[in-house]
Design a protein around this nucleic acid. Structure first.
Length: 197
DNA sequence: CCGCCGATCTTT
DNA sequence: AAGATCGGCGGG
């Protein structure tokens, strides 16, 4: 019998570019204060070369975390309503991040249901970038949080589950500019995706 | 199931 | 004015 080992990810895991990190993040566990799940859908975002990225036109107050060191969170507020969370990657000073778009709930489902009372089914808890932030209680206070230190309660773990050998890939969702780039990766057939696939 | 619409913050 | 979204509502 093989005992599964759960370990927090080290800084160098985050040093690669957004596309590479995106694929490596599939299957990892994202937890905030012990509540969260397995990443099943992500999107990669670059910098000045990516018209779909918040960093395309340079640094602003909102996107500053995208320019910071890898292994931290970039949490932004959108449509005046929702929070969304990204994992910052690449070298410090070079903007890049991976948007976490969906989780398969694994830890603290009761807490998630309380925070998302309008979610009828378990697959409605974390099936979208703003939904999962609500379920995990991630908000602006977590912008810039260090995932490696984990001091803000947010951490990524590897429990031995390998990323899918052939993740499905397609255009990023909700973009006008840069929509042609197939930088969304997801676990084929997972019931928690932000849209079926 | 689908499409429309409002929520109202950030940046342009 | 539009945006890396969501949920409620109306219609088929």
């Amino acid at each position: 019998m093989i005992l599964s080992t759960v370990r927090a990810l080290e800084r160098d895991f985050y040093g690669r570019d957004a596309g590479g990190l995106a694929r490596e993040l599939l299957g990892k566990l994202l937890l905030c204060d012990g509540v969260g799940g397995r990443i099943v859908e992500v999107e990669a975002y670059g910098g000045a070369d990516d018209p779909g990225s918040h960093a395309f036109r340079g640094r602003t107050r909102r996107n500053a975390s995208m320019f910071g060191p890898p292994g931290h969170l970039y949490v932004y507020f959108i449509y005046g309503v929702h929070w969304c969370a990204n994992v910052v990657c690449g070298a410090e000073g070079v903007p890049g991040a991976v948007l976490v778009r969906a989780l398969a709930p694994t830890h603290g489902v009761d807490a998630m249901r309380r925070r998302r009372a309008r979610a009828r089914r378990e697959r409605d808890l974390c099936s979208g970038p703003a939904r999962l932030c609500q379920a995990l209680a991630i908000d602006g206070s977590h912008d810039g949080a260090d995932l490696v230190g984990g001091h803000a309660g947010v951490r990524l773990f590897d429990d031995g589950t390998a990323p899918p050998a052939r993740p499905r890939r397609g255009p990023r969702i909700g973009l006008a500019a840069g929509a042609e780039r197939p930088w969304r990766w997801y676990v084929a057939g997972d019931s928690n995706l932000s849209r079926p696939g």
